[in-house]
Simulated scan of single mutants.
Amino acid sequence: MKYLRSVRGRMLGIALIPGSALVVVAVVITAFLVHQAVRTRDLAVETATAADRTARSVVALQAQRSAAMAAPELRTAAYASYTQRIDTAIAGLRDYVRRAPDAESAYQQTTAVELLSVAEGMDRSDSLALAGLDGVTRRPYALAVAAYRAGLTRVAPQLTDSGRTAYESLTRSADWSRLAAAEDAFAAAEPLPVPESMWRSAAYTVSAQLGRLYTQQSQYAVQLTLDDGRRTLAGALSAGTALLLCAVLLLIVVRRLVARVPVPVVPIMVPTVRSAIPRPRHARSRRPKVPEPWPLKAVLDDLRRP
Rank of each mutant, 00 (worst) to 15 (best):
R304W: 08
L300N: 12
I29C: 05
S57Y: 01
Q36G: 03
I268M: 13
R256Q: 15
L74A: 06
L244W: 10
A276F: 11
G229Y: 02
I14D: 01
G121H: 05
L133W: 10
R287K: 10
S285L: 14
T110N: 15
I29G: 03
T215E: 13
A236P: 06
E292N: 05
T171R: 08
D301G: 04
L43Y: 06
A247P: 01
K297F: 08
P157I: 01
V194D: 13
M269C: 07
V265I: 13
V25G: 03
L128N: 09
V266Q: 13
P262N: 12
P295V: 04
Q216L: 11
V38E: 11
I252M: 07
R65V: 00
L12V: 05
A180Y: 00
L130S: 08
V27N: 05
Y3K: 11
A21C: 11
K2S: 15
S207I: 04
A247C: 01
T111D: 00
L192A: 15
A100K: 03
R8C: 06
Q36D: 10
R98G: 03
R5A: 12
A48H: 07
A187K: 09
A247Q: 01
M269P: 11
L224F: 06
P288V: 04
P193M: 06
V265M: 09
Q223V: 11
Y167L: 01
A26L: 00
